[in-house]
Design a binder for these strands. Structure first.
Lengths: 244, 244
DNA sequence: ATAAACTCCTTACGTCGTATAGAAAAACGA
DNA sequence: TCGTTTTTCTATACGACGTAAGGAGTTTAT
């Protein structure tokens, strides 16, 4: 991110790449990005080391630097690349349903590539596929005849809600592991010891937790799903109400 | 996070600390956490290395491990500690205003300690001050007479929106630096070269950007502020509408 | 007095991104 | 055609990081 952006952007937006002088390149940026995405899908973003990606392609870490100027840029490319999977969400019909559809699809993308959530920064879009995702949403919001201000507010809110909900879902999914379950049990016990007055100090939190437990079955996972759907509904209702 | 949570939780919730045998400790957990927060405020979370914190206190990195079992736990402690600054947000009066007030205060906290945004995971609350922040919100939502389901949905949405907006604001603030301005100029130029058909491919994005530019002055910063306020308004309106 | 428990220091390991420098390979100018 | 230039890729190395291991010194319990 700190280096000259021109090359990264050129690669993102469909290269130029005139005839070069030296030896032919044995790999390609696409191949490297695909390999990196595979590693990230399997083992998370931290596992995407230059050495690991190089190894996967049968070459050294340093050779990758002739394709991408830094690991950060590689991650930018990965980020944009997976956004192609989302495709276009058309704006026809009821805009409320379209917003819900867009949100669900973006959340699915995050769940399929949880490492997307490990990337921080709300930096403006850099690549064409990210841009397409944003454009799709803006088209829907335009069809709802929101003001420009509300389009921005809604966009920001929707991205945030989807990301937050996806993170919750991913964490919930991970918490089902045996080791994590034990960890939580131990944490709960330690908490009960350390704060015996929890229920009096935090009655509302306790009430919500009790209600959650009452629903039984999959306490975290499905609760997160429902909270997501409902959160989107709340926002849509608000947009509807303040639309005039 | 991977180790026994009991000790971390004991420290978080106000210790026990019976009489120990060896030499007296020359520092305290509070001192270490405060020092780490100072470093993070100044230089971000990455600057909080065990060596840096130790150095600040005139001791070695390894000595810190008698106070906190790992860097991750230190960060948990930092996280909870700064949440004490937010204090209680009372639930009296109009719940709509209270929600807005709570959101604004949390956002201010994030802006004052931007490294909070570098911490990922939507893990359930661990410390008492985080818990208090959640409790305050739940009290407000209870006074609004939302269903339990809607309280969860609204909680999740509000945390997400606040966090997302804060991140945007922090990034906008950072983008005013000279070096970054140059970077963006270069990126813009590169983008114009790489995608001359941008405006046709992404008409809605272009329209929003044009509207933004038309407003002039501080294009990013105040726009982010307004989008935040409006996003919260949208959600509150939705809660209001679907309340029955 | 001796033993146990504890703090803190020094040293060291394995990891990372990437700087540097050189070898081999391809295209260019003559 | 033959250097010259440009580029790819490798090997090596540096300085960071979190933290494991081991040991010296200090305090308390027996």
């Amino acid at each position: 991110m700190r280096t000259d952006p021109a090359r990264a952007i050129a690669v993102l937006w469909g290269r130029a790449a005139g005839p070069r002088r030296g030896p032919r390149q044995a790999a390609s940026v696409e191949e490297i990005v695909a390999s990196a995405i595979g590693i990230a899908d399997a083992d998370g973003l931290d596992a995407v080391t230059m050495r690991a990606v190089g190894n996967e392609l049968g070459r050294t870490a340093m050779s990758l630097y002739t394709y991408v100027v830094s690991r950060d840029v590689l991650i930018d490319l990965m980020y944009d690349s997976v956004h192609a999977e989302l495709g276009e969400v058309r704006a026809g019909g009821d805009w409320r349903k379209a917003v819900a559809r867009w949100s669900g699809k973006l959340r699915d993308l995050y769940l399929e590539h949880p490492w997307l959530l490990e990337i921080q920064s709300a930096r403006p879009v850099l690549g064409p596929h990210e841009q397409q995702v944003l454009e799709s949403l803006l088209r829907i919001l335009a069809s709802a005849e929101l003001t420009f201000e509300d389009r921005q507010a809604a966009t920001s809110a929707l991205f945030s809600i989807v990301k937050g909900a996806a993170r919750q879902a991913v964490d919930a999914r991970a918490a089902i592991t045996k080791a994590d379950a034990e960890w939580w049990a131990a944490a709960g016990k330690a908490l009960a010891d350390a704060a015996p007055d929890f229920a009096e100090r935090f009655p509302e939190s306790t009430a919500v937790a009790a209600h959650q437990r009452r629903l039984g079955a999959q306490p975290w996972v499905t609760a997160a799903d429902q909270a997501f759907t409902r959160a989107i509904e709340l926002l849509i209702a608000g947009m509807d109400k303040l639309r005039d």
